[in-house]
Amino acid sequence: MNPATHTPEHFLWSFADGVGTVTLNRPEKKNPLTFESYAELRDFFRALVYTPEVKAIILTGEGGNFCSGGDVNEIIGPLTEMDMPQLLEFTRMTGDLVKAIRHCPQPVIAAVDGVCVGAGAILAMASDLRIAAPDAKTAFLFNRVGLAGCDMGACAILPRIIGQGRASELLFFGRSMSAEEGERWGFWNALIEADDLLSEAGKWAARIAAGPTFANGITKTQLNAEWDMGIDQAIEAEAQAQAICMQTEDFRRAYRAFIAKEKPVFEGN
Rank of each mutant, 00 (worst) to 15 (best):
H6R: 08
H6C: 02
E9A: 13
A16L: 03
V19P: 00
V19E: 00
T21R: 15
T21Y: 10
V22Y: 04
T23K: 06
P27N: 05
E28V: 05
E28A: 11
K30A: 15
L33G: 03
S37N: 08
Y38F: 15
Y38L: 15
L41C: 12
L41T: 15
R42W: 14
D43M: 11
F45A: 09
F45Y: 13
R46F: 12
A47L: 02
Y50L: 08
Y50T: 07
T51H: 05
P52E: 09
A56L: 09
A56M: 05
A56E: 08
A56R: 03
I57E: 04
I58P: 02
T60M: 03
G61F: 01
E62D: 11
G63F: 09
G64E: 06
C67T: 03
C67D: 11
G70P: 04
D71L: 03
V72E: 14
N73K: 08
E74F: 00
I75C: 12
I76W: 13
L79I: 08
E81C: 06
M82Y: 11
D83Q: 07
M84K: 12
M84Y: 14
P85V: 10
L88E: 13
L88K: 09
E89K: 06
T91D: 02
M93V: 01
G95Q: 15
L97Y: 12
L97M: 14
V98Q: 10
K99N: 14
R102G: 03
C104N: 04
Q106Y: 06
G114M: 02
G114E: 05
C116P: 05
G118N: 13
G118Y: 09
A119T: 09
A121G: 08
A124V: 07
A124H: 04
A126Y: 09
R130G: 00
R130D: 01
D135M: 00
T138R: 01
F140S: 03
F140Y: 15
F142C: 08
R144V: 00
V145A: 13
A148G: 07
G149C: 06
D151G: 05
M152E: 15
M152Y: 14
G153W: 07
G153L: 13
A156N: 10
L158D: 05
P159M: 10
P159F: 07
P159L: 10
R160Q: 13
I161D: 01
G163Q: 02
Q164E: 11
R166Q: 11
L171F: 08
M177G: 02
M177N: 02
E181T: 05
W185S: 01
G186I: 04
W188V: 00
L191A: 01
D195F: 01
D196L: 07
L198E: 11
G202E: 01
K203E: 15
W204A: 10
W204Y: 04
A205I: 01
R207S: 15
A209E: 08
F214A: 14
N216G: 02
T219Y: 14
T221V: 04
N224K: 00
N224V: 02
N224A: 02
E226S: 10
D228C: 01
M229Y: 08
I231T: 07
I231Y: 10
I231F: 12
A234M: 10
I235K: 13
E238P: 03
A241V: 06
M246P: 00
M246I: 02
T248F: 04
E249Q: 12
D250E: 11
R252G: 05
R253F: 02
R253H: 11
R253G: 04
A254C: 11
Y255L: 13
R256K: 15
A257G: 09
F258A: 12
I259Q: 13
E262I: 04
P264E: 12
V265W: 00
F266L: 13
